[in-house]
């Protein structure tokens, strides 16, 4: 995660509790290479239904539109590539 204390960064800190920051991992999908609109769309889908993940349903329900926008902007602006080996 980028090291700043912006609104987006503060919310994105919560994402990092489950989503691998280096974009590894498959059981919990990586979120480090998504664009802003895709993230917003995913969050709206998660908010609408519990069926695919109740963790993400809970998270999406707890965030306002403004917060979803802020975190999506932050994640998209900090697209990461895997560290070279």
């Amino acid at each position: 995660m980028a090291a700043d204390a912006s609104h987006g960064a503060q919310i994105a800190a919560a994402c990092a509790s489950c989503h691998d920051p280096s974009g590894r991992g498959h059981a919990i999908p990586p979120i480090t290479s998504l664009d802003e609109q895709t993230i917003i769309k995913f969050m709206h889908n998660y908010r609408a239904s519990e069926s695919s993940s109740h963790v993400m349903h809970a998270v999406a329900l707890s965030l306002s539109e403004e917060e979803i926008g802020a975190v999506a902007r932050h994640l998209a602006a900090n697209v990461r590539h895997r560290d070279p080996p």
Binding site: H19, D20, P21, S22, G25, A27, I28, D83
Partner: peptide, 19 residues
């Protein structure tokens, strides 16, 4: 159960640092 294993590696990277 599979997600739990994914959670473990992401979570510990968050706490003890990336890498």
């Amino acid at each position: 159960a599979h997600q739990a294993v994914g959670w473990y590696s992401a979570f510990t990277a968050d706490v003890f640092g990336e890498g």
